[in-house]
């Protein structure tokens, strides 16, 4: 039997430091153990909770592992066809300019089939928030190569590693959209350590707050893990992310208040 270290006497409301926000439903998320989609969902829900906008926010879910995001956020949500979330969000925001409208999209969704929708929504400067979960792979469909897959990275459709001569270079779509006049805030974050979680949450908060200014797209990339697609246990996948994803996809703000951040 394991030893009991419970301290029930301190479990009082005034001592409460952290508990799951009510903006997430009690449904158990279908994500694999340790998947960054879960952590990112939590941060988005916490921001909505802390801003007090649960009734004023509309999310657009993608196709990909997060296709069922609407089962987990206790807010109004709309499902979009694969890659079309920025176009759907454009329509919703134009009909309801006073709502906070966001998309939640994987890298296959946003940077492959949805590249056109992404770039044009960013170039038009729609007043929406785009949350981009980049795990460098098509998680949902069995770990195929994505535009974001790293050079040399093995996937089910690049079993010997991505050969950039044959398969092309990975697309840094976040840097690309930062070049467009319609983006107001562009940042790249991650959620695999406590410090990074705190930073990412601040960035997501800013990306929602910016909608009050009506200055264009706020775009937050989250460099995330796909343990199943990468075929690594969660803690090892995080190490792999730090050693391989982060050198290629460096974290930090790229554009703030409409100005490029000088590096």
């Amino acid at each position: 039997m394991e030893q009991n270290f419970d301290l029930p006497e301190i479990h009082t409301p005034e001592n409460l430091v952290y508990t799951k926000t009510k903006v997430l439903t009690d449904n158990v998320m279908h994500y694999c153990p340790g998947c960054g989609h879960g952590t990112t969902h939590r941060l988005v829900a916490e921001v909505i909770d802390e801003m007090g906008i649960q009734g004023q926010v509309i999310g657009v879910a993608p196709v990909g592992c997060s296709v069922l995001a609407y089962n987990y956020f206790d807010i109004d949500m709309q499902e979009a066809a694969h890659g079309r979330a920025p176009a759907v969000a454009t329509g919703i925001k134009r009909v309801f300019p006073d709502k906070f409208v966001f998309t939640y999209q994987g890298d296959g969704d946003l940077a492959a089939i949805g590249t056109g929708e992404t770039i044009h929504a960013c170039n038009r400067g729609e007043n929406i928030t785009i949350l981009f979960i980049n795990n460098g792979i098509y998680g949902m469909t069995g770990g195929q190569m994505a535009p974001t897959t790293l050079p040399g990275m093995p996937t089910s459709t690049s079993p010997y590693g991505r050969d950039v001569k044959m398969m092309g270079n990975p697309l840094k779509i976040t840097e690309l959209v930062a070049m467009l006049p319609g983006t107001y805030f562009v940042t790249r974050q991650a959620v695999h350590t406590p410090a990074l979680v705190r930073k990412a949450k601040k960035a997501i908060r800013m990306a929602f707050e910016n909608q009050k200014l009506n200055r264009g797209v706020s775009f937050v990339e989250i460099v995330s893990n796909c343990n199943s697609g990468w075929k690594l246990p969660p803690v090892q996948a995080i190490k792999w992310l730090e050693e391989n994803m982060l050198p290629f996809y460096p974290l930090g703000d790229i554009k703030v208040n409409g100005e490029m951040v000088s590096k």
Partner: peptide, 28 residues
């Protein structure tokens, strides 16, 4: 996940990295 000592300081690091919102934290 289980607790294996009585050294918790209620920093919530565990709770904020948990993808599934499993952990509630108290501090006094």
């Amino acid at each position: 996940a289980i607790k294996v000592n009585a050294d918790c300081i209620g920093c919530a690091n565990c709770a904020i990295v948990c993808p599934d919102g499993v952990i509630t934290v108290y501090k006094t």
